[in-house]
């Protein structure tokens, strides 16, 4: 889902950077506040960041014959709220843009907006909605993580369609073209990402039950 260096027109790069910057600054402040006011959450914070670092490096095959990678941002959004992931996701994207030539510095704002802002917020929205419907924690986490993945790629499709509208069918035609490319590819990856999230949250409910209870994810006496 990383748009490569130089692939968006300069004006688009500037616009996406301007749109992303307030979220990232707010996210950095949220991380500092978390560390300062809730030092017991440092390990959860590190786990969320590490999980994103690991899974966003995994290129997995898909049924379309291409490969892509999960985003991992849904987990941190569920555990620590989306602003934290805006900052952690940006660090991961910066790492990949500078050291792996994956993504780019000019497209960083666009990639941050899709992976570190919209993905986590979509995950959090789905998680809250599922929780309100009394879904079990595992189901809420699964849906949140899968939706984070799909939402990220949907926004990337929109960003590409805005930059490269179809000569005949315009923005709508280009959007359908890019969504068609990503959508089928991402479905199995979204499922795998959801399962990975359930696995990790299941572990955390045993190993970090007090922290998860304080974060409001579960009651002290509740199961997964």
């Amino acid at each position: 889902m990383h748009i490569a260096e130089g692939m968006l027109p300069p004006l688009h790069c500037a616009a996406w950077l301007a749109a992303s910057t307030p979220f990232v600054v707010h996210g950095a402040r949220a991380v500092l506040t978390t560390v300062r006011e809730h030092p017991e959450r440092k390990l959860i914070l590190a786990a969320a960041g590490a999980f994103t670092l690991v899974v966003s490096a995994l290129k997995l095959p898909s049924i379309t014959g291409s490969s892509s990678h999960p985003t991992g941002t849904g987990l941190g959004a569920v555990l620590l709220r989306p602003p934290v992931m805006a900052f952690l996701g940006t660090l991961v994207l910066l790492f990949q843009a500078t050291l792996l030539a994956h993504g780019g510095l000019t497209t960083l704002g666009a990639n941050v907006f899709s992976m570190a802002i919209v993905g986590p917020w979509a995950a959090y929205g789905v998680y809250r909605a599922a929780s309100r419907l009394s879904a079990p924690l595992w189901a809420s986490v699964f849906l949140a993580m899968a939706v984070a993945n799909i939402a990220t790629y949907a926004v990337t499709s929109l960003q590409l369609a805005l930059a490269y509208p179809d000569p005949t069918s315009g923005l709508g035609g280009a959007l359908v073209k890019f969504l068609a490319l990503f959508a089928v590819t991402q479905v199995p990856l979204a499922v795998a990402e959801g399962l990975l999230g359930v696995l990790l949250v299941g572990f955390l409910t045993r190993a970090a039950r007090p922290e998860l209870a304080r974060l409001g994810l579960l009651k002290e006496d509740a199961g997964v």
């Binding site: 748009i3 260096e5 692939m7 300069p10 892509s68 000019t106 991402q186």
Partner: peptide
């Protein structure tokens, strides 16, 4: 199993105006 990111780049038909550092 080439990357879908690269496939999307090809689908745009665009030429990068900047190369990675």
């Amino acid at each position: 199993f080439l990357g879908s990111d690269a496939a999307a780049g090809e689908l745009t038909g665009g030429v990068p105006w900047l190369e990675p550092l």
